[in-house]
Design a protein around this nucleic acid. Structure first.
Length: 922
RNA sequence: GCUGGUGUGGCGGAAUGGCAGACGCAGCGGACUUAAAAUCCGCAGAGGCGAAAGUCUCGUGGGGGUUCGAGUCCCCCCACCAGCACCA
């Protein structure tokens, strides 16, 4: 095996690491701990794509590096294996989802191991394993057993819930407790997706369609399990501050929770009822000229006048049938109906009409608003549509008036900025902030309103009408006739795990009745002489992934989800790496569960993931696309192209033929690409997200087969910064593969029959310049690894290799250090070379090289001489000259003297870092 | 619309306010070879002048500013990417 042959090297070392359990982690407290976590994958049938190894390689490099730095590293892997695709497969084939899931897991494990990652495989977890989901169910019971004490700002055991004096009797107390639990049932309007046969969380609905599959979703009321995540809204926002996460992810979480501050105000109706509204602009109360209730608002039936009843009911019915999508995305124009009722504006006693309209959401605030058309875009639009009064109560700036063509009395659009209040009685002349404070205090004094904080976040809809998920450990009591008594009974921890029953048929009914209902044997339970039906909903896929990082800490524990002492030792996760697609869902849910466990004393810190890094998306290869109509080229300038279809950007909207162009048939003109030789014919150039339909998916197996795992790893890290989105380029893999070949040839005689060191490798001291290059590389690689700059670390090793290649004699000590630097990145090659250098042990725990600062500096350095900011000369000077000596040397240079002839030197600047002198002339 | 981010050679990208383009890909020239591949050595931002050595000008999306000095800091604008979006 003379030349570099990853196929021969890599499987051998992978086997070595597995057999020797090289990366098994012990709970030894003698070394500092480091917990590095990858987002575990859903083991799909399609196998790994190149996006997975990106994050996994980054963390693997850091773990290998930190082990060499003496850290005790916890680095596990597992499977988020419940999920719809496996169940869909079961429906199609009749094969139990378990079988298919295990098959996919085996394939994922094989693929992941073929990349040489240093996971501790003894800690592997599988969310579908009863030994795992036993504890998922157990945590659900904790949620069920917890209520949120808003005064203490803490979740507490339900047994500590104070029962109000009015609540008497066993049943009433049980109902009261049930209504306060963090896991509770409610009849709520849900997102029902008929195609998937399940309801979806709000987070899983994008633009009115299911996140998975893009199927239509409709709203319907259903009894569901919910988790009271809203109780933790404030803490979920506050605790973001202490986390080392990107601003964008923190921003997305804050935005999702959607905190806003304002006031609740009561408007009296003529009939004696009051409508409570939420507003963030109480300062505009004098401008409220009408009110709007959501169509679902509880007061609508009672306040509607007989004349308006028919219209109101028709509108309510229409609104309830609309999907969320139709109510929001499609509704460009405002709709609504007058109820016939009038309310009294509490600040000025004015009688204002009460409408219903679906632009007011039942689920936010109080489900009712005061409409201030002059200062709210939606209200303005509505008022215009229905000719309602618009009254300016905040003075717009003159600039705004002239820009919008408005006058203070007649606005052409809503003025939503701050300003001085007007037409507002006691508020006149006050700034928006002051007016808000003043009116809120006034309302409070009169008992008409109060300050109020609201969140967009809603409780987490936690049940799914599917088979392949964790069953709820909950029993519903039934009476002799088989009807529910309304009492619910949790299983005791000793009864866990509650496993799934076998089913002959996995098909969802198309109606919201879970498939588990078909398992009558399983469903019907008698306990202590009472009859129960099991809960037939299952938990969503998020459940298992909410806490898997805890199980890794103690994966085999049968007494607890993990040993408290081990939890204290390993938490928090020091580094968590994964895709940004989980920015809101998984990370928010996980943080919520963690906080509940924290409140209940099961974990010792309030946040699970101290540092979070999102790897960027890897796109497919760049594609050049030209456009043709009847064989004639059409310039991309005149084309609307969405990546799939192209249309002429004119009245004809003619659909054009797409022509894939090879790179050598295009050229760049300015900042555009054009057909080669036809600069007027512009061509589209872009990289697309990898997708099966586009056919641009890169399979890691293929890359490993062709170039080896070390090359794949190295390429993915060399492409650019970890967090950036970047296009794949197979020639780049070729490049790093050639680099590894060059490293190989530094050591190995590639004309020999066996793996044998080159004659040029000798036990000699290194030359000064070689030492300098080596120590610079050590410094660069070390610093870059600490900052997760993998691409520049690799560049530094390439530079060192380029320095060593031409040498006729290569000092063994230098080569040994190079191998150690390379080891985290290309571990198979490094182990092989380490062995060739005569070592019999794995290098996984060799000490990381340390650089000597004294060796970094040159004896001579080049100094650039600028005159008036432009480089005019370069000179070699002795290293370490101080500023004045350097200035003197430079000023004495003949070419500098010549160039300064006839000019006055105003100032000479010598930066502290050296390397440059700037002579400022008058 | 709101929030966050990104704009640097043919391409991926590098650059604590101090020599823009490290490193790699693609390209060009050379060595080795009967030849090719592989490998090794070298050239390489754009443009002008020059036979050449050289030399000058322009250059980090656009416009302004701060500074001796700006890819980097500040203001305005443009384009693209991601997330959110009737949340009162």
């Amino acid at each position: 095996m003379p030349s570099y042959n990853p196929k021969a090297i890599e499987p051998r070392w992978q086997q070595y690491w597995l057999t020797n359990k090289t990366f098994r982690t012990t709970d030894s407290p003698d070394r500092p701990k480091l917990y590095v976590l990858d987002m575990f994958p859903y083991p799909s049938g399609a196998g790994l794509h190149v996006g997975h190894p990106e994050g996994y390689t980054a963390t693997d490099i850091l773990c290998r590096y930190q082990r060499m730095r003496g850290k005790n590293v916890l680095h596990p892997m597992g499977w988020d294996a419940f999920g719809l695709p496996a169940e869909q497969h079961a429906i199609n084939t009749g094969e139990h989802p378990h079988i298919n899931t295990q098959k996919n897991i085996s394939n994922f494990r094989r693929q992941i191991q073929s990349l040489g990652f240093s996971y501790d495989w003894d800690r592997e977890v599988d969310t579908t394993d009863p030994n795992y989901f036993k504890w998922t169910q157990w945590i659900f019971l904790v949620l069920f057993d917890t209520w949120y004490d808003h005064d203490a700002k803490k979740g507490r055991p339900i047994s500590e819930l104070p029962i109000p004096p009015g609540v008497v009797g066993e049943d009433a107390i049980a109902r009261y407790r049930d209504s306060k639990r963090l896991a509770y049932q409610a009849e709520v309007p849900v997102n029902w997706c008929a195609a998937l046969g399940t309801v979806l969380a709000n987070e899983e609905v994008i633009d009115g369609k299911s996140e998975r599959g893009g199927h239509p979703v409709v709203r319907m009321p259903l009894r569901q399990w919910l988790l009271r995540i809203t109780a933790y809204a404030e803490r979920l926002i506050e605790d973001l501050d202490g986390l080392d996460w990107s601003d964008s992810i923190k921003g997305m979480q804050r935005n999702w929770i959607g905190k806003s501050e304002g006031a609740e105000v009561d408007f009296a109706l003529s009939g004696g009822a009051t409508i409570r509204v939420y507003t963030t602009r109480p300062d505009t109360l004098f401008g409220a000229t009408y009110m709007v209730l959501s169509p679902e608002h509880a007061l609508v039936p009672s306040i509607t006048t007989p004349e308006q009843r028919a219209a109101v009911e028709a509108y309510q019915l229409a609104a309830s049938r609309k999907s969320e999508f139709e109510r929001t995305e499609l509704a460009k124009t405002k709709t609504g109906v007058f109820t016939g009722a009038y309310a009294v504006n509490p600040v000025n006693g004015e009688r204002i009409p009460v409408w219903i309209a679906d632009y007011v959401l039942a689920t936010y605030g109080t489900g009712a608003i005061m409409a201030v058309p002059a200062h709210d875009e939606r209200d303005f639009e509505f008022a215009k549509t229905f000719s309602l009064a618009i009254r300016t109560v905040v003075t717009p700036s003159l600039e705004w008036l002239s820009r919008t063509g408005s006058t203070a009395d007649v606005l052409t659009e809503a003025y939503t900025e701050d300003g001085l209040a007007c037409n507002s009685g006691l508020l006149d002349g006050l700034t928006t902030d002051t007016a808000k404070a003043k009116i809120t205090a006034w309302l409070r004094e009169k008992g008409l309103g109060t300050r109020k904080v609201n969140y967009k976040l809603r409780d987490w809809l936690f049940s799914r009408q599917r088979y392949w998920g964790e069953p709820f450990p909950i029993l519903h009591e039934i009476d002799a006739d088989g009807n529910s008594t309304g009492r619910i009974e949790p299983l005791s921890p000793q009864e866990l795990p509650l496993t799934l029953p076998e089913l002959a048929d996995f098909k969802p009914s198309g109606r919201p009745e879970p498939p588990l209902g078909k398992a009558t044997q399983w469903v019907n339970v008698t306990r202590n002489g009472r009859r129960y039906k099991r809960e037939t909903n299952t938990m969503p896929q998020w459940a298992g992934s909410c806490w898997y990082y805890l199980r890794y800490i103690d994966p085999k524990n049968e007494k607890a989800f993990a040993d408290p002492q081990k939890l204290r030792h390993w938490l928090p996760v020091d580094l968590y790496v994964g895709g940004a697609e989980h920015a809101v869902l998984h990370l928010l849910y996980s943080r919520f569960w963690h906080k509940v466990l924290y409140d209940r004393g099961y974990v010792s810190m309030p946040e699970p993931f101290q540092k979070l890094v999102n790897q960027g998306l890897i796109l497919g290869e760049v594609e050049f696309t030209g456009f043709q109509s009847n064989g004639e080229w059409v310039s991309g300038k005149n084309v609307k192209f969405d990546g799939a279809t192209a249309k002429r950007d004119d009245r004809t909207q003619e659909e054009l033929t797409l022509v894939k162009l090879p790179e050598d048939q295009v050229e760049k003109i300015g900042d555009q690409f054009a057909l080669k030789g036809r600069p007027e014919i512009r061509v589209d150039a872009r990289a697309y997200k990898m997708s099966k339909s586009r056919g641009n998916v890169i399979n890691p197996d293929v890359v490993i087969d062709q170039y080896g795992a070390d090359s794949l790893r190295l390429y993915e890290m060399f492409m650019g910064p970890l967090e950036a989105t970047k296009p794949w380029n197979m020639r780049g893999v070729d490049g790093v593969s050639r680099f590894l070949g060059r490293v190989w040839r530094l050591f190995i005689d590639d004309r020999s029959e066996s793996v044998q060191l080159n004659d040029t490798v000798q036990d000699v001291p290194a030359a000064r310049d070689t030492l300098r290059e080596l120590h610079r590389a050590i410094q660069k690689v070390t610093d870059d690894l600490d900052a997760m700059r993998f691409n520049t670390a690799i560049a530094a090793m390439m530079e060192l290799t380029n320095h060593l290649t031409p040498l006729n004699v290569r000092p063994r000590s230098v080569l040994e250090t190079l191998v150690l630097l390379l080891a985290p990145f290309a571990p198979h090659l490094a182990e092989e070379l380490w062995q060739a250098l005569g070592h019999s042990q794995s290098l996984a725990y060799e000490p990381w090289p340390v650089y000597d600062p004294a060796l970094l500096v040159d004896t001579e350095v080049e100094v650039a001489v600028q005159i008036a900011g432009k480089i005019k000369a370069r000179v070699m000077v002795q290293a370490g000259l101080d500023a004045s000596a350097l200035e003197a040397t430079v000023m004495a240079l003949p070419e500098v003297v010549a160039l300064l002839q006839g000019k006055t030197v105003k100032k000479v600047i010598v930066p502290a870092r050296g390397g440059l002198v700037n002579i400022v002339v008058a």
